[in-house]
Simulated assay, not measured.
Amino acid sequence: MTALQNANRHATAIVLGSTGILICGPSGAGKSELALALLHAAHRDGLFSALISDDQVLISSAGGRVIAATPPAIAGLIEIRGSGLASVEHLDCAVMDFALTPVSAENAVRLPPFDSRFDLGAGIFLPQAFLRWPAPDPLSKLLALCPGLETGRPARLSPAGKDP
């Protein structure tokens, strides 16, 4: 595995509890909107939540972990498409535990493979989950995919019937 150092990726990175989530997808897929919905729902439910970076994420790897950081010029800013930029609570960097890809209802696969991996380049991968978006209550769906996420401790994607 080759190390990555500040590779700029088109994505959005957030932390819920102590779990880092890299939201990936093409432009217009709803990454920022999904991130904002997850951040606010987590905060409302008393779970720590913070933005790392929106639209541009600097990806590095160290010790087998993926680290996401924000370019200083956009720290704490998230795009609300059609409305502009908004300031939200943020962290400068965090370890990413998995990638989350929003998919439209018409493109959603009923049962996508659970062992999907998101390729960050240089032989670096993150486990990947898919979430239909837009849809009501994305946090509940994410909590079902990541048992233990609601506790604030690090959570991982877990296939049905398996311990995380």
Rank of each mutant, 00 (worst) to 15 (best):
D45E: 13
A75M: 09
L51E: 11
A50H: 09
D115Y: 01
G64V: 07
E89M: 15
E89A: 15
A73F: 15
F118Q: 01
E79N: 09
A62R: 14
A62G: 15
I74D: 03
I59F: 08
D92E: 11
S83N: 12
I67R: 02
P102T: 02
A129P: 10
G46D: 07
S53V: 09
P102Y: 02
R117Q: 06
I74V: 15
A37G: 01
P71H: 12
D115F: 01
L120V: 05
V66H: 04
E79K: 11
S83T: 12
R110F: 03
L111R: 12
M96G: 01
R81K: 13
I67S: 07
G82S: 02
A62Q: 15
A42L: 08
G63L: 08
S116W: 05
P113F: 03
P113M: 00
F130Y: 14
G46E: 10
L39P: 02
L38Q: 00
F98W: 02
V109S: 05
Q128G: 03
F130K: 10
H90N: 13
L111W: 08
G63Y: 09
A69V: 06
V109A: 01
E89I: 14
A86W: 03
A73R: 12
H43F: 07
H43C: 12
A129F: 09
L36S: 13
A35H: 11
S53I: 05
L91S: 09
A99Q: 04
F130E: 07
F118S: 07
I67Y: 07
P102I: 01
V88E: 08
P72W: 10
V57M: 11
G76V: 01
A122D: 12
N107Q: 11
G84A: 05
A69I: 10
L39E: 04
H43G: 12
F130Q: 13
F130P: 03
P71T: 10
L126S: 01
P102Q: 08
A69D: 06
E106T: 14
S83M: 12
L91C: 11
R117Y: 01
N107L: 10
Q56G: 09
A129N: 04
A68R: 01
G76A: 10
R44L: 05
S61M: 13
L100R: 00
A68Y: 08
D97R: 03
I59R: 03
T101K: 11
E79Q: 12
A68C: 14
F98E: 04
I67L: 15
A42S: 06
L51S: 11
D54M: 05
I67W: 11
A35L: 07
L47S: 11
A35E: 09
F48G: 13
G76D: 07
D92P: 03
F125V: 08
D45C: 05
P127A: 04
A86Y: 04
